[in-house]
Design a protein around this nucleic acid. Structure first.
Length: 183
DNA sequence: CGACTTTGACCCGCGC
DNA sequence: GCGCGGGTCAAAGTCG
């Protein structure tokens, strides 16, 4: 796979990359925050619908599962060698995009470190880690079975560095994401 | 040659 | 305890 670098902003390539809201519950089961968009407004540029003045269709869903209500597969610092240490749970943020490609170029550099088949999903889930030194951010990318046009991206952790390859509006989006994080 | 992907193995938590 | 599923590791392969 090449370094596809054109998915953001949405309009440049004719690919429809914009958020949709479909199976929010699906995400809610596995993540803490869900960012999605209420409607497929055909316009471009508003990636998650996270425009500054969020209109009525702009839903930034913030799950209440934060702070202790993590279920099942919540993220934890299980660096496999931290025996006695406390598990640190990082908040995760999931959002859906309608895209023909799986890898959204958000401006950071990611290294794929795993791929797993997921139960009840014909598409595999891919695991990526930020390659920036000292940055532990991970993300998972998965395509929905019932709508293969939708890619669910789950971010885990926050970057401790600047975006490396700024795209038009993703940095702004990230800034907004930080607003909704507890730290 | 460095950066990255692929992929099977391994580990761990959870439900039964 | 066992099996399953999710997440990670790491060696090998690929690519520019």
């Amino acid at each position: 796979m090449e370094n596809c670098q054109m998915f953001f902003p949405c309009s440049s390539t004719g690919k429809s990359v914009y958020p949709v809201m479909t199976t929010t519950d699906y995400i809610a089961n596995s993540s803490d925050h869900v960012f999605s968009h209420g409607d497929q407004s055909s316009s471009s540029g508003g990636f998650l619908g996270l425009k500054q003045n969020s209109g009525p269709n702009t839903d930034i869903v913030k799950n209440d599962s934060i702070n202790g209500a993590f279920h099942g597969s919540e993220s934890e610092e299980k660096s496999s060698k931290m025996k006695g240490e406390k598990k640190i749970k990082k908040p995760r943020f999931a959002f859906q995009t309608r895209s023909q490609v799986d890898i959204l170029d958000d401006g950071y550099r990611w290294r794929k470190y795993g791929q797993k088949a997921v139960k009840d999903n014909k598409f595999p889930r891919s695991y990526y880690r930020c390659t920036h030194e000292g940055c532990n951010v991970k993300k998972q990318v998965q395509r929905l079975t019932n709508d293969e046009g939708i890619v669910v991206t789950t971010y885990e952790g926050m970057h401790n560095h600047r975006i490396e390859k700024p795209t038009d509006n993703f940095e702004h989006i990230l800034n907004q994401l930080q607003i909704y994080t507890p730290f």
